[in-house]
Design a protein around this nucleic acid. Structure first.
Lengths: 243, 243
DNA sequence: CGACTTCTTGAGGAGACTCAAGGGTGGTGG
DNA sequence: CCACCACCCTTGAGTCTCCTCAAGAAGTCG
């Protein structure tokens, strides 16, 4: 297992040797997915989780009007499919937005983690809490901001996530999303997403050509979007120790 | 600890004697809160979780326009404050919407649960996943439905939660929310919430007088709101056993 | 009884949607 | 190598939902 995919876990504290040992068990062979291919289908009762290695994926649901709604974007290092563990059928699909590599993980590994690696279990638990906060932030965004503000918010969020796994990345990043994808993410029509993007371009806040995005004026974007950086609590003293 | 507050846990499987023993440690004396009183403040770095015994609470953030946004409603049996465990400062406030009784729980109890009661830990983990699904459902609602549909959705959701802790409850329930609260929950103005409620009344779907709500035609409401019942997976075979 | 909050109703305006059509780009196959 | 096709991006015009502002009615609590 490379360093990158565990970045979300190590944000909360250091992993010990045993943790890495059980994580290594997760590291099987990755499966490849093409854009718009599904890792999981909404309504399916087949229970499996994935560890994302590379690429962009999103949780998706189908809408009455035929379009889809993208609820949450997932990047490398994310463990996806956990929410549907609680239900008899999957609440959302998981769809690849770019070429993706993901490792399927057996649920039994999760059993072992909870039974024998309480520290690791608690850290996975914390990542899930972080996801809850992220969903709440998206709810604030969708319910209270204009489309231009939501797009700015989305870009800042993705940029922060990329910085998390690659602290040396600058203001520019690769974004393999169509404007239709952006529309599905911020909850509007492709036409309107296009207008919002052009507004960000014309005001000089963002450069966005094909799949290359650069945040030209991040402070202004932060102000525009009312963006609140979420800083994770590292070395939480309450974390249990492994036996 | 009464039976009701553990309903969300037992939905996933049976608890054993040890589980109840550690849960009993949680059961200190409840603190009372008046409506609009805060259990937790957005931005606070004081880390604590609460077990709700009675009353309605909600996760709340302040908006630029002076109003607040209610992100998620919490009822008795909910463990609130978990998401902010992952962050250095609380992402949202937790506010009482009715008279509330809640038991403060020390974080150290959580440490003990993860260390020694893996089955209970996994069940709390599953409730958090269920919460993620609920947040995704709210995101679908806010991003894709009209105000009338969102209000219908909210009523169906609350009704389902009440049925969960009291299976004998009928179609009528006590809802201690003002129309302003409803507006903050569905993400609109009080004026518009009022119009939506009147629409539901005039079409004979809902009876809503003061704090008494009755769903007069639940099938029609379900259809209107595109409501999808989320059924939890009971007796998940992967759940660990306690040592 | 008076002050306050909540509920209700009206009118005008702004943002986002729908429908529609044209232009650019990459991929495929002849 | 070129023609064609599919998808994505772009732009325009009209419509509708929802918001804002405003004010009055009803209910609640001290």
């Amino acid at each position: 297992m490379q360093a990158t995919p565990v970045a979300r876990l190590t944000a909360f504290g250091n992993l010990d040797e045993d943790d890495y040992k059980v994580l290594a068990k997760m590291g099987g062979t990755g499966r490849k997915f093409a854009p718009n291919e599904f890792l999981q289908r909404e309504g399916s009762d087949f229970r499996r989780i994935w560890l994302l290695m590379t690429g962009f994926t999103a949780s998706s649901v189908n809408r009455a009007n035929g379009r889809r709604r993208l609820l949450r974007i997932h990047l490398s290092g994310d463990l996806v499919g956990l929410p549907s563990l609680a239900l008899i059928t999957a609440a959302s699909s998981i769809v690849a937005l770019s070429p993706v590599v993901a490792i399927p993980i057996k649920i039994s590994v999760l059993t072992e983690v909870f039974e024998s690696y309480p520290r690791l279990a608690a850290m996975i638990f914390l990542v899930s809490q972080e996801e809850r906060v992220a969903l709440m932030d998206r709810l604030i965004s969708v319910g209270g901001l204009s489309i231009v503000e939501r797009v700015a918010n989305l870009l800042l969020h993705i940029h922060a996530r990329i910085l998390c796994s690659d602290p040396l990345a600058g203001e520019a990043f690769y974004l393999p999303l169509t404007q239709g994808d952006v529309a599905d993410l911020v909850g509007c029509t492709p036409v309107h997403a296009n207008r919002a993007i052009q507004h960000l371009r014309s005001t000089g806040l963002v450069s966005w050509n094909r799949q290359d995005v650069e945040l030209l004026d991040r402070p202004a974007l932060v102000k525009l979007a009312g963006y609140i950086p979420r800083i994770v609590e590292r070395d939480s003293s309450w974390l249990p120790v492994n036996r």
